[in-house]
């Protein structure tokens, strides 16, 4: 029973992080039609910034906030200075692949830069609360205080995002821009601003994911590569163009990974991820919440 609960709580906590990563990917995909492979490179970079701030004696929370802001700025910069100029100058049939290659290029640059600035060696990253087994009135719980923190923070983010997209005018403008650019522009919405904004929110969300996952993975220029792959799988499982789908996909994969880890062996984790992806795509090719219409090209 205790093993089961440990797997459940662990999976939920990891799943929350994958949900954030998937959310970031889906936001940018819907807003700009780009799968941003640099996303967790950006997160790695901002986690290094946080780590450096902490090493210089600043509090965790200052570093936390600075990293989120840096993530938003970095996301916006990628759109403004890389994606937009590329979009303006591309007229070939390769249009769909150019941003993907560019995002891989940005990933490479960020990883190289991180290696140069902070040397290549792995370093730890602190948690704001205890990450050892939590005990309440003498009884050891199957989760840690940090697990609770992760799930709590992610839930707050998800609730705020939902309110933003469903209850505010700007959220509506962003959804409209993503769904139908022409109608949005004809409604007087500045679609370009909405795109930058989606890159910024995505950047901040992935920065947050980086901060939350790094205590477990340690920090190196490549430390978040795997998280991107799992997050991307979660996004595809969820339906790539659906925000709720991304969140469901993230939690689902977190649980799958955790249960396989506990009940089978860690070596089977990748097989399980692949199997989940294949099964979902066979049963529902558009993903759990994805719309049936084909990919916009």
């Amino acid at each position: 029973m205790n093993t089961f609960l440990t797997a459940l709580f662990n999976g939920t906590s990891r799943g929350a992080i994958f949900a954030l990563v998937a959310l970031g990917l889906v936001l940018v995909w819907r807003g700009s039609g780009v799968v941003n492979f640099a996303q967790m490179g950006q997160a790695m970079f901002t986690t290094y910034i946080a780590s450096t701030l902490i090493a210089h004696g600043n509090s965790y929370w200052i570093a936390f906030i600075v990293a989120l802001i840096a993530g938003a700025l970095l996301g916006g910069a990628v759109d403004l200075f890389v994606m937009r100029p590329l979009h303006k100058h591309s007229h070939s049939s390769l249009n769909a692949t150019i941003p993907i290659i560019a995002s891989l290029g940005i990933l490479g640059v960020l990883q190289a830069a991180a290696g140069m600035f902070w040397a290549g060696e792995e370093r730890g990253f602190p948690t704001p609360v205890n990450s050892l087994g939590l005990s309440i009135s003498g009884k050891v719980m199957p989760f840690t205080a940090f697990d609770l923190f992760v799930v709590g923070v992610v839930l707050v983010v998800l609730v705020l995002t939902t309110i933003f997209f469903t209850r505010t005018g700007m959220g509506l403008a962003m959804r409209a821009s993503a769904l139908n650019e022409e109608v949005a522009r004809l409604s007087g919405i500045k679609v370009h601003y909405m795109k930058v904004l989606s890159w910024m929110i995505s950047g901040a969300a992935s920065s947050l994911a980086g901060l939350l996952v790094t205590p477990a993975t340690n920090l190196s220029p490549n430390s978040l590569d795997l998280i991107l792959i799992i997050g991307f799988t979660a996004a595809v499982v969820g339906g790539l163009d659906s925000l709720p789908g991304a969140v469901i996909g993230g939690f689902a994969l977190g649980l799958v990974i955790s249960f396989v880890n506990v009940y089978l062996t860690p070596e089977n984790v990748f097989l399980a991820i692949l199997l989940t992806l294949v099964l979902v795509l066979i049963v529902r090719p558009q993903g759990i919440m994805g719309s049936k219409v084909g990919r916009r090209v």
Binding site: G169, L172, A173, R175, A176, L179, N180, E182, V183, A184, L186, S187, G188, I189, S291
Partner: peptide, 19 residues
């Protein structure tokens, strides 16, 4: 030209957002 994934009310609201 409407956005079919949005509600009727949201579609109308779109046109007034900038104001």
């Amino acid at each position: 030209a409407v956005i079919s994934q949005l509600t009727v009310e949201e579609n109308i609201k779109l046109g007034s957002l900038f104001r």
